Simulated assay, not measured.
Amino acid sequence: MRYLVCLVVGVLAGAILAGMYANAMQRRNAWPRALMNVMQHELGAARSAARDGTCAMPSQRRPADHLRLVADDLDAALLPAGAKDRVLSQYIVDFRAAVAAWDAQGPCPRQAEALTTVANACEACHRDYR
Score class of each variant (00 low, 15 high):
residue 1 M to K: 14
residue 2 R to A: 11
residue 3 Y to W: 15
residue 5 V to F: 15
residue 6 C to R: 10
residue 6 C to D: 13
residue 9 V to G: 03
residue 11 V to G: 01
residue 15 A to T: 10
residue 23 N to L: 15
residue 28 R to Q: 08
residue 30 A to I: 05
residue 30 A to L: 13
residue 34 A to W: 08
residue 35 L to T: 13
residue 35 L to M: 13
residue 36 M to H: 15
residue 38 V to S: 09
residue 40 Q to P: 06
residue 40 Q to C: 07
residue 43 L to K: 10
residue 43 L to I: 06
residue 47 R to L: 09
residue 47 R to G: 06
residue 48 S to E: 12
residue 52 D to L: 15
residue 53 G to N: 03
residue 58 P to G: 06
residue 59 S to T: 05
residue 61 R to F: 11
residue 61 R to S: 13
residue 64 A to I: 08
residue 65 D to Q: 11
residue 66 H to V: 09
residue 66 H to N: 15
residue 66 H to Y: 11
residue 68 R to P: 10
residue 68 R to S: 10
residue 68 R to Y: 08
residue 68 R to G: 15
residue 69 L to K: 06
residue 71 A to W: 02
residue 74 L to H: 14
residue 75 D to N: 11
residue 75 D to S: 12
residue 78 L to D: 05
residue 79 L to K: 06
residue 85 D to R: 01
residue 87 V to L: 06
residue 87 V to W: 10
residue 90 Q to P: 01
residue 90 Q to E: 14
residue 92 I to G: 00
residue 94 D to V: 02
residue 103 D to P: 02
residue 106 G to S: 14
residue 112 A to Y: 12
residue 112 A to V: 05
residue 116 T to G: 13
residue 118 V to I: 14
residue 119 A to G: 01
residue 120 N to W: 11
residue 124 A to W: 04
residue 128 D to V: 04
residue 128 D to K: 02
residue 128 D to Q: 13
residue 128 D to N: 09
